[in-house]
Design a protein around this nucleic acid. Structure first.
Length: 667
DNA sequence: TTATCCAAGATTTTT
DNA sequence: TCTTGGATAA
C-alpha cells in the first residue's frame, strides 16, 4: 500500500488538538480515519476507548473491515465503529432508567409514526388536519434534528405552528407511554440525558476518550450536540468532512457545523486533503468547474496524477425508453470491447423511480445488475408483520405493533371492535393490549368480540413468557407454525411465487435474528436487544454476498456517496430532475449541484451524462430540457453525441438489434 | 366483516 | 404507469 502523503500523515498524527480534516472526494478520508485508529492504538490508547461514527451501516462495515487489516483482533478489541444511531441506541439501552424508560425499548419506524400521528389527530384535542399528516411528521422530525424539545417548540411557535407544537408534545408523550422512541430520538435523548445527568455523561466520556466522525458535513444540530458533549472540553476528536458533498440538508444536516467548529474550539486545527487518488484529471477538472458555481467557506481544489483522460460524453435520447436501451447497450458494448467486468459500471440517478425502466431492460437482456437500497427489507409487509409480533412479545404496550397484527392473520377482529377497544383504552389511559383484559369491555362489546381479544392477548402473553424462560428461537419457530402465517401468505398473495418469496423473507429474517443473537455478548442477547438493533440495520447488510457478484450497480446519487466505479453513467441530467423540480421551486439549486458533483466524482476513468428530450411522467409524455448543470461544464472537455434526431422506431429497432447482436456475441 | 373495484395521487433524496 | 385507500356490495 502506498505511503500516506504529508497532509494525510499530519491528519493521522495530530492527536493533541481537536482536528477538522477537509477531505475532498477520493482523497483517502476513510484511510485517514482507519490509519488514525491504528496510530492511536500504537500510541497507547486502548481500542475500547476509541469510537468512530458514520452515517450508514455500510460505511461502518467497511471501516471495520479496513481497521481489521491494520490491527489484529487483540489490538482492536472493544473498538466502537458504528452509526450515530446505533451509538444512540446503545446509550439508551444502557441508561434507559435515567430517562424513565422500561427495558424492552421499541423503535418506531416512519410508518408507525404516521399511524400514531393519524390516531392522535383523529382522537386528540389538537386542531390539526389529518391530510397534512406528512407535513406534521416532517416538522416534528425537523424539530428533533434541531434539538428543539416540545416545550421549546410550544413556547416559540408561531400561530400557525402552535397546533403542530402541541401535537409534537402529544406525540412524544404517547411514544413514552408505549415505551418507544423514534429514529431522531436515538440522537436527541442521549444528549438530553447527558445534559441532565453529569455523572452519566462522565461515565460515557470515560468510555469514549477519542472520537472520530466520518462525513461530518452531514451532521445535524442534534448530532453536533452529541459530538460536542461527548468530546467535552478537551476536544479529543477528529472530524472528516467535505462541504461540497453535503447532500442531506433536507434531512436537517448543517454543513455550517464545519465552520462552527472553529468558533467552538479555539485550538482547532484544520488540514486539507486535496490530492485525489480516484479519478482521471479531466473528470476532476469538470467536477471542480461545476462546483465552483457554489459559494465556499473553505476553498479547495482537487487534483490527481492519474492522467488526463478522454472527454466526458453527453448523450441525448428521444425518450426514457430509448435512454435505458441505449445506455445498457453502450455498457455491454464497452464491456465487450474492453473485456472488463459488469461491476465496473454504475448507473446513477436522482430519483428511485428512474431505475424502473433500466431494471426491466436489464432483466429482459439477462444482464446481471444490483439495485442498491431501493426498498428496505423492513418495508415488506410480511417482515413488518413478524416484527410487530416480536415487538409485542417484548413490549405489550406497543400499540402500533398491536394494531398492525391484531387481525393478521384474520381473527375476526375488525375496525368496529378496535374502535371501541381504542375508546376504552383511551379513557383509562392504558394500552390496547392491557385493555383486552378489562372486564369493563363487556359493556360496549359483544361477548364474542371480548372473547376473541382475550384469547389473542392470552396467547401473546403465554408465548412471551416461553420466550423469556425457554430457548428463544425454538419458541419463535413454533410460534410461526402456530400463527399459520404461511397459509395466510398463500391465501393473500397474487401468485404462488410471490407467496414463496414472502415465506422465504420471513425465514431469512429469523435466520438473521439468530445470527445477530450469536454475535452479541451474553448480556445483550435478549430478544428485546436484538429487535431494537435489527431495526437499525438495512437490507444492504443482508445483501453483502449478492453485492459482491459481477453486476452493474444501479443507485441514487445519494446512495452513491463514498463509492467509486471505473465507469459512471449519470442518467436523466435534465431540468426538473437534476436539479429536481422541488429544489428549483424552493431555490435550492446549490445542493442539487453538489449532488451532481458527488455523481461525477464517483468516476475513476469515464463519466457519461445522459438526458432525454421526452420522458414519461405519471404515464404522460412530457418534454424535457438538458440540465443547466451541463452548461456549467467546460465545453472543451465534453463530447456531445446524437446531434441528429432519429425517428423513435429507428432508435428502437437499432437498440434492439444492438442488444441482440451483443447478446449472441457474449454467449 | 370481508372482498372487490375504481379513482386519485405519486416521484427527491434516508438513518 | 403503478400503488394505495376508500367506497360499495355480498
Amino acid at each position: 500500500m502506498a505511503a500516506l502523503n504529508p497532509q494525510q500523515q499530519a491528519a493521522v498524527k495530530t492527536i493533541d488538538h481537536p482536528l477538522l480534516v477537509l477531505a475532498g472526494a477520493g482523497s483517502g478520508k476513510t484511510r485517514v480515519i482507519t490509519e488514525k485508529i491504528a496510530y492511536l492504538v500504537q500510541q497507547g490508547t486502548l481500542a475500547r476507548y476509541i469510537a468512530a461514527l458514520t452515517f450508514t451501516n455500510k460505511a461502518a462495515r467497511e471501516m471495520k473491515e479496513r481497521v481489521s487489516k491494520l490491527l489484529d483482533s487483540q489490538q482492536s478489541r472493544g473498538l466502537r465503529v458504528s452509526t450515530f444511531h446505533s451509538l444512540g441506541l446503545d446509550i439508551l439501552r444502557k441508561e434507559h432508567k435515567a430517562l424513565g424508560y422500561k427495558s424492552g425499548l421499541t423503535l418506531f419506524d416512519d410508518q408507525d409514526k404516521l399511524t400514531l400521528l393519524r390516531n392522535l389527530i383523529a382522537h386528540g384535542l389538537t386542531d390539526c388536519d389529518i391530510d397534512a399528516v406528512d407535513f406534521y411528521n416532517k416538522q416534528i422530525g425537523d424539530w428533533k434534528n434541531a434539538f428543539i424539545t416540545p416545550e421549546r417548540a410550544i413556547s416559540t411557535a408561531t400561530d400557525e405552528n402552535h397546533a403542530v407544537a402541541l401535537l409534537y408534545n402529544d406525540f412524544n408523550r404517547n411514544l413514552k407511554a408505549y415505551n418507544a422512541v423514534d429514529f431522531d430520538d436515538l440522537i436527541l435523548k442521549p444528549v438530553l440525558l447527558f445534559q441532565q445527568n453529569p455523572e452519566i455523561l462522565e461515565k460515557w466520556q470515560n468510555k469514549i476518550r477519542y472520537l472520530l466522525v466520518d462525513e461530518y458535513q452531514d451532521t445535524n444540530i442534534t448530532q453536533y450536540q452529541l459530538v460536542r458533549i461527548l468530546a467535552g472540553n478537551l476536544g479529543r476528536f477528529t472530524v472528516v468532512g467535505d462541504d461540497d458533498q453535503s447532500i442531506y440538508a433536507w434531512r436537517g444536516a448543517q454543513p455550517e457545523n464545519l465552520a462552527q467548529l472553529e468558533k467552538d474550539y479555539a485550538r482547532l486545527k484544520v488540514i486539507k486533503l486535496e490530492q485525489n487518488y480516484r479519478s482521471a484529471g479531466r473528470i476532476l477538472k469538470v467536477a471542480n468547474q461545476l462546483i465552483s458555481n457554489n459559494p465556499h467557506t473553505f476553498e479547495k481544489k482537487l487534483w490527481s496524477n492519474l492522467g488526463f483522460g478522454d472527454p466526458l460524453k453527453v448523450i441525448s435520447h428521444k425518450d426514457d425508453r430509448s435512454e435505458a436501451t441505449q445506455i445498457i447497450s453502450e455498457i455491454i458494448h464497452h464491456k465487450f470491447r474492453h473485456g472488463g467486468n459488469y461491476s465496473d459500471y454504475a448507473i446513477l440517478y436522482r430519483g428511485n423511480h428512474q431505475s424502473r425502466l433500466f431494471e426491466r431492460t436489464l432483466r429482459e437482456n439477462n444482464v446481471p445488475y444490483f439495485i442498491s437500497g431501493n426498498s428496505s427489507f423492513f418495508a415488506y409487509s410480511e417482515i413488518k408483520d413478524i416484527l410487530a409480533y416480536l415487538r409485542l412479545f417484548v413490549n405489550q404496550d406497543d400499540d402500533a405493533a398491536f394494531l398492525r397484527i391484531i387481525n393478521t392473520p384474520r381473527r375476526e377482529i375488525g375496525p368496529t371492535t378496535l374502535e371501541k377497544l381504542g375508546a376504552y383504552a383511551n379513557k383509562r389511559h392504558i394500552s390496547l393490549f392491557t385493555a383486552c383484559f378489562e372486564l369493563g369491555l363487556a359493556q360496549s362489546l359483544s361477548e364474542k368480540s371480548v372473547f376473541r381479544l382475550k384469547k389473542f392477548a392470552d396467547w401473546i402473553i403465554d408465548t412471551a413468557e416461553k420466550i423469556e424462560i425457554g430457548d428463544t428461537f425454538v419458541v419463535i419457530d413454533r410460534f410461526i407454525q402456530q400463527l399459520n402465517y404461511e397459509a395466510w401468505l398463500h391465501e393473500n398473495s397474487k401468485t404462488q411465487a410471490a407467496a414463496e418469496r414472502k415465506i422465504k423473507n420471513v425465514y431469512d429474517l429469523i435466520e438473521w435474528l439468530k445470527r445477530i443473537a450469536d454475535k452479541e455478548t451474553e448480556d445483550e442477547k435478549s430478544l428485546a436487544e436484538i429487535i431494537s438493533k435489527i431495526l437499525l440495520m438495512d437490507i444492504l447488510e443482508r445483501n453483502q454476498e449478492e453485492e459482491a457478484g459481477d453486476q452493474i450497480s444501479l443507485m441514487t446519487l445519494h446512495a452513491s456517496k463514498g463509492l467509486e466505479f471505473p465507469h459512471v453513467f449519470l442518467i436523466g441530467i435534465e431540468e426538473n430532475l437534476l436539479p429536481h423540480q422541488n429544489s428549483i421551486e424552493t431555490d435550492n439549486i446549490e445542493e442539487e449541484r453538489r449532488l451532481a458533483y458527488v455523481g461525477i466524482t464517483r468516476a475513476q476513468r469515464s463519466c457519461t451524462f445522459s438526458y432525454c428530450t421526452h420522458r414519461k411522467r405519471y404515464g404522460e409524455v412530457s418534454e424535457c430540457e438538458p440540465s443547466r448543470f451541463l452548461n456549467e461544464l467546460p465545453e472543451e472537455d465534453l463530447e456531445w453525441s446524437n446531434k441528429k434526431q432519429l425517428e423513435p422506431e429507428v432508435i428502437k429497432a437499432r437498440g434492439k438489434a444492438n442488444l441482440a447482436n451483443l447478446k449472441s456475441m457474449l454467449s
